[in-house]
Design a protein around this nucleic acid. Sequence first.
RNA 1: GGGGGCGUAGUUCAGUUUGGUUAGAACGCCUGCCUGUCACGCAGGAGGUCGCCGGUUCGAGUCCGGUCGCUCCCGCCA
Length: 596
Amino acid sequence: MNDLLGSMKKSCTCGELEKKHVNKQVILMGWVQKRRDHGGVIFIDLRDRKGITQIVFNPEINKKIHTKAQSIRNEYVLGVIGKVVQRPDNMINSNMATGDIEVLVNELKILNTAETPVFQIEKNVETSESVRLKYRHLDLRRPRLQKNILTRHKVSMVVRDYLNKNGFVDIETPFLTKSTPEGARDYLVPSRINQGAFYALPQSPQLFKQLLMISGFEKYYQIVRCFRDEDLRADRQPEFTQIDMEMSFVNEDEIIEIAEGLIKQIFKKVLDINLELPFKRITYDESIARFGLDRPDMRFALELCDVSNIVKDAGLNVFSNVVKKGGIVKAINVKGHSTFTRKEIDEFTEFVSIYKAKGLAWIKVKQDGWQAPIAKFFTDEKKQALSNCLNMEVGDIVFFVAASAQIANEALGQLRNQLARHLNLVNKNVYKFVWVTHFPLLEYDKVEKRYQAFHHPFTSPLEEDLEKLETALLEVKAKTYDIVLNGTEIGGGSIRIHSKGLQEKVLNALGIDKQEAQNKFGFLLDALSSGAPPHGGIAFGFDRLVMLLCQEDSIRDVIAFPKTQKAACSLTDAPSKISSRKLQELGIKVSELLEE
RNA sequence: GGGGGCGUAGUUCAGUUUGGUUAGAACGCCUGCCUGUCACGCAGGAGGUCGCCGGUUCGAGUCCGGUCGCUCCCGCCA
């Protein structure tokens, strides 16, 4: 039988006692981190969220309590009353925050016993993720997740504080909402009252925050859950959190400025790092040209170079044929690494094949000339041109990918990051931000055979590109801005369309005719015609941001109760089957194929 | 939908290449001893459906087929 808490009240935490508290009577409560039973004296490390304090049971001081303490095991929950005493000089533990003192116990309550945990509640005891997820309540006791979750809390506080002070209003938006045709797959919720009809969980509060601007709130924010029914990744969960913002009467610069201020505050308050503002800005086109990706890691150079014009008639068919078909040849010069082995090059070749590159050509620049299978195809003149373009010097190795622009850029951009990892060029303690602006408004989906919004269908085109809406859709750039930190997109936004006419035009370009537009977005179009102010906003991936601040590799490690890659919760076993009665109530019949 | 990795004591792993006696180690756990430890120490002990199902074989942790789970990635994620 456990002891009752009664009127016992924690007087301090296990992390705060030091020399100046000596002789004080204290009441501590917490979990047993470790017991060391010497037959005579028993030491117990008592842990709470703030730290660990050594408590001592001495049979000479209190025989009865000492006897009781013999039954204590790891993770038991204790309440103790005792006196803070200074440790003898030679027994001070300098590795411990509270190592100067210990607490001599004169009253002990065993508030709860505990089964031996399936894994040790300690730092640096490796445990597989499946076990950690199944016993998440135990994993959350450990220092790593405690720290991450507290960091997450701190970020959230800083965000709220900053936005509140800047006049933003926290407004909740519905979770039970309308399915939209564009974008990710929706999570659906059946309606019992309207059988056969479904709500969708929001992929983001996009339209609601625009409506709030139309309602005149001018500055909105929310730290809000979003839902997308797509396959998971280390940085993608089916439910995730955004810092969502929207402002009226602003242009891109004002939103970027507010967002930069927010990031600066977070880094200052959470990591005590002073970021320099403003962050660098590059356009989407420049980002793709120089780094191959729309989320460049700016911690290292290794820029890409388009060599199509030089190699297209160099007599090397794999290059010239690609250029003839409208593709490109891009190259990356890895300075000073002509020492790459055959095996390393093979690995890089295999790496780019993930991104559909069919091969990876290379040239090693040696003292006595080029060493490369493709070298013989180049005339001296071409060699010189290539050398100049890529700044090739003795000791360098250059990699080439020839493919469609999309594949070549993606493959070489990914290779760029891979090379940086391989060569250890990335410093984990450096934080390089960059804004990537002016994304295309639309892209062409070859599978669906139609245009799709690159960002979302409510994004405003650049004013100077409005005419191209009629003539060259794919050349229209948009008023967008993504913020990228060390190669990870942590946020993005846009200026929205606030005129009904333009919105209809863009929907039309997306292949949504007037009738369909009215059905699906009628409420927005109506609102736009009711006096909508110019407005725009941004959303940050809260989990990703916290992940980077915690130097974790997966957002699962900054979410208290994450899902597995099959979108299941190991702790609760969700999702699970439901009774036929409940299904009936909802008017839902599960396909026979799925039933056993 | 596709490709890669992993699955052996409570936990982390070795053993699988080349099938062969009783499947090992560390940590944890249990018992006893121990009055100054803090990775306490000493002595002893318990603990395994080798993910699951099937096949090959005299014999399978090991080989083959299937399946489930975890994970990384491609596709997907406006």
